[in-house]
Simulated scan of single mutants.
Amino acid sequence: MDWSVIYEYRYLLWNGFIVTCKLSITAILLGTLAGIAVSMARTSRIAWLKIPLTAYVQLFRGSPLLIQLFMFYFGLSYIGVNIDIFKATALVFTLYAGAYISEIIRAGIESIPKGQFEAAKALGFSYVLLMFRIVLPQTLKVSLPPLIGFNLTLIKDSSIASVVGYAELLHQGKTIMNMSGKPFEVLLFISLIYFVICYPLSMFVAWMERRIYIR
C-alpha cells in the first residue's frame, strides 16, 4: 500500500471533510428544529395540520433518500427553478431528517404521563407553554439516544450527496482515485475518517442508554 497518496492530496480530503461537516451540521440542526415543530403540531388539537404533516412524514420516511435527492436537484432544474447544489442538498437532508426526528420526538411526547398534561391545563398553561416548560425537556432527555443514533446514520448518509456532484468527502475521494489510481488506500482512509467521527458518538449513545435504563 502506498499511503503517500493521502499526504499528496490532503487538501482535497480536508476540503471534503469540511463540506461533509457543513452538510451534516446543517441537516442535523435544521432537521431537529423541523422535527420538533412537526411533532408538536401533530400532537396538538389543530386537526387541519395533521393530514399534510402526516403525508410529509410518510413520504420522506417511505422513499429512498437517493430518489429524494435526484427529485429535488434535477427535478427543480427541470421545471425551471435554479438552486445551487448546497442549498438543494441541504434542503433534502433537512426534510429527510425532519421527518424521522419528528417521529422520534412524537414517540417521546406520547410517553409522557397524561396526568402531567391534565395538571398543566388545570393550571392554565397554553399548549406551547406546556410543551416548552414541561413536555419537551422530558421528551428530549428520553429521545436523546435514538436522536443521536439517527444523526450518526445521517452523517454517514451524507456520502450519498456525491452522486449529484456535491464535493463532500466521498466525492473528493473519487476525484483522488481517478487521479492516483489507488482506490484502496483512499477508501480506507475515508472510512477511518467516518469512524473517527461516528465512534465517539456511538459510545455516547450507549452511555446515555445505560443511564436511562439504570434510572
Results as ranks from 00 to 15, higher is better:
A206R: 15
A55R: 06
G31E: 01
Y194N: 05
G75I: 02
F195L: 13
S143C: 05
I214T: 10
I112C: 10
F195Y: 15
V142Q: 00
C198P: 10
F72W: 11
A47D: 08
F150V: 02
Y213L: 12
Q116L: 05
L13P: 14
E103C: 04
F195C: 13
I25N: 09
S159N: 03
E168Y: 13
L192I: 12
L69D: 01
F72R: 02
I197D: 02
L29I: 15
K87H: 07
L169H: 06
L147H: 06
L129P: 00
I109W: 00
V57G: 03
T54N: 03
C21G: 08
L147D: 00
A27V: 07
M1G: 09
I28P: 11
Y127I: 07
L76F: 15
G181R: 05
W48F: 09
L140V: 10
L30H: 07
C21D: 03
A161K: 06
F195H: 08
Y56R: 00
E103H: 05
K114R: 11
L66G: 03
G115P: 00
G16E: 09
Q172H: 15
L187S: 15
M179W: 02
W48K: 12
G149N: 14
I36Y: 11
I160H: 06
I67T: 15
G108D: 03
G124Y: 03
V163L: 01
F70C: 12
K87F: 03
R106D: 08
R42A: 04
V164R: 06
I83F: 02
F60N: 12
R45A: 04
S159R: 13
Y213C: 07
Y100A: 02
W207G: 02
A206M: 06
N178A: 14
F70Y: 15
G62F: 12
N82P: 00
S202T: 11
V5D: 07
L49F: 11
L144E: 10
G80I: 05
L29H: 07
M179I: 09
M203T: 01
I212V: 09
T43P: 10
F93S: 04
K22A: 15
V5H: 12
F195D: 04
G75R: 06
A47W: 12
K174L: 05
L169G: 12
F70A: 04
D2S: 08
L154D: 01
R210A: 01
K87E: 01
G124W: 01
